[in-house]
Structures are given as C-alpha cells and as structure tokens.
Write a protein that binds this DNA or RNA. Structure first.
Ligand SMILES: [Mn+2]
Ligand SMILES: [Mn+2]
Ligand SMILES: [Zn+2]
Ligand SMILES: [Zn+2]
Lengths: 140, 140
DNA sequence: TTTTAAGTTGTAATCATTACAAAAATAGTG
DNA sequence: CACTATTTTTGTAATGATTACAACTTAAAA
C-alpha cells in the first residue's frame, strides 16, 4: 500500500507530521469520525495539537480529494477517506453508520440535461439487522 | 388539490393557523427554504411568530411525514414537502439546489443484507448549466 | 544569516439548533 | 358559563459545531 507521505504528495499536499497522523487515523478508523473524535484520539500523541488544525487539515484533505465529508442526519460533519467511493446506511434506531460498498446503481442519464455531474452521494436510512432483532424480541 | 387543513389532519396534526401558513409557504416556495427564510417570510404576517415555533413545526412536519429535511453541504437544514420524493442537484459554483424529479434508478437489492430500508436520499453535485456558460465565456 | 512562506496554535466570534419554562390559546367537563 | 387540563406558541438562555483571525512556530528560500 502507498505510504502516507506519498499519498499526500500525489495530491499536492506537503506531508507534515500532523497531516500524516490524521491521514493515518482516517485509514485505521472503521467508523466515520467527527472532528472531535480525531482531536481526542491524536491529542495524547501530539500534545500541542489544536482543534483548529484538525479543521484545517480536513478542509485541505477534502479540497484535494484525499478525504470527503459524509453528510448524515447528525449536526456535525463526519469524515471518510475518498479512496473508494461508496454509499452509506444509517440506522434510525442506533444511529450507526455502515459502509455500502456494493454501490447502488444510480442511473443519471438525462436526469438533469446540461448539468455536469461531479459527484453522487447516496444515504440510505432504515433499521439495521441488530436493531430489528431487538425490536422483534421486545414484542413477542 | 387537498386543502392544507385536510393535509395536516390526514397526517394526525392539528391544523393551527401557524401550521397551515408554514405548510402554505413550503408549498409555494420553489426553492428549499431554511428555518430563517421561513421565519423572515412569515413574521410580517404573523407578528408574534417565534423562531422556536418554526423549529417546532418543522420537526413535527418531518416526524409526521409532511415535510422532510434536505441535507446539503450547507450547515443549515433546508426543508421540502414530502409529497413527491425526489433527488437533489446542488451546483458547486452557485450553490443553487435543483429538484431532480426523474429519479435516478437506485438498485438496492442485496446492498445490505438484513437491513430494512426506509428511505434513500440522493444528492448529486456538479456544475449547473448556467455556471458552465459563465465559465465558458470567461476563458474564451 | 536573513527573509519569506507554510504550518500550527489559542482565543474569540458566529450561527444554527436545542432546552426550558412561562404565557396564550384551545378543548373538554360539569 | 366557569373550571380545568391539554396543546400551542413564545422568549430567553444555553449548547455546540464551525469559522475568523492574529500570533507563534517551523520549514524553505535567498
Ligand atoms: Mn464510509
Ligand atoms: Mn426538493
Ligand atoms: Zn441499528
Ligand atoms: Zn451554478
């Protein structure tokens, strides 16, 4: 796998230590961390870390297509590596977010004549398997 | 077309004057107003209107499936009638939001085994026709 | 070194949303 | 009608994520 500094350089980002560690965290995180989670996780390792830097870095990553903001019903932004585009499923009961790698087939032909499509984001909501099980037992 | 009070009653909402006027505004608005736009528009007609009431009403509408929150890259919620489900296109240049009524065909079969899908929201981003024209002339 | 730019930090401000309790309006009961 | 309970609306204060901004630090350039 490509090293973090190479990833950043290939996107035109100077690979500072802080930026590489944030990229590292995004790679390792299974979930979709918000700014505060990233800050809390890295602050012990980078004692001088500022939350503003986390914001700055994520804005930079998003602009340079290293990461992307995942928009959910939460009021805070969550982040995701931009490497493999995919959809998201959010459970309305437990609020957990699942990646949907088997991308739904979105047919865009003629959907908006004249528009130049850059990106399609799909958010599916419903009840996850675990929460259905809980609901099921409760009423039997 | 169904009257506002009938619409609200059919969704289990008591049709107060304020609620009907907010529903009215949502019906008339071509765009996707945020809370403040709704408040500013109705405050002259309802001098005692409180922004909290707008929030309360939109929450109620959303819960009872009269309206739905449209999640965009903006940091504020925008609202939409829930009557005809559709996708949205937001221009990255001018930020304008367009309805996409010719729904993209989203194939969900086997996308998340076990999950019970309730809703799919699709947000397309790109450059609208008007902004492409502007860009084109600028560089010729 | 000296100078310039890039990266990082801390604090204050902004702004949408929520919490909450009081006030007003409405509905129900006798 | 009078009385009470419930619903609806209001105003203000708190919350919390994000941004603005200027200072500080580090790295690069000259
Ligand atoms: Mn994801
Ligand atoms: Mn719409
Ligand atoms: Zn769940
Ligand atoms: Zn545009």
């Amino acid at each position: 796998m490509m090293q973090n500094d190479a990833v950043l350089k290939s996107h035109g980002i100077k690979p500072s230590l802080t930026r590489m560690m944030i990229l590292d965290y995004l790679k390792a995180a299974k979930k979709h961390p918000n700014v505060d989670e990233i800050y809390q996780a890295l602050q012990p390792k980078i004692p001088t870390l500022s939350k503003t830097t986390v914001y700055n870095t994520l804005h930079l990553f998003t602009e340079k297509n290293v990461a992307r903001a995942v928009m959910l019903k939460d009021q805070e932004n969550r982040y995701d590596l931009a490497s493999h585009p995919h959809a998201h499923f959010q459970c309305v009961k437990c609020n957990e977010v699942f990646d949907v790698f088997r991308l739904p087939d979105v047919q865009l032909d003629g959907v908006l004549p004249g528009a130049q499509v850059q990106d399609v984001s799909v958010l599916i909501s419903g009840v996850c398997e675990a929460c259905q099980a809980k609901e099921g037992t409760r009423h039997e």
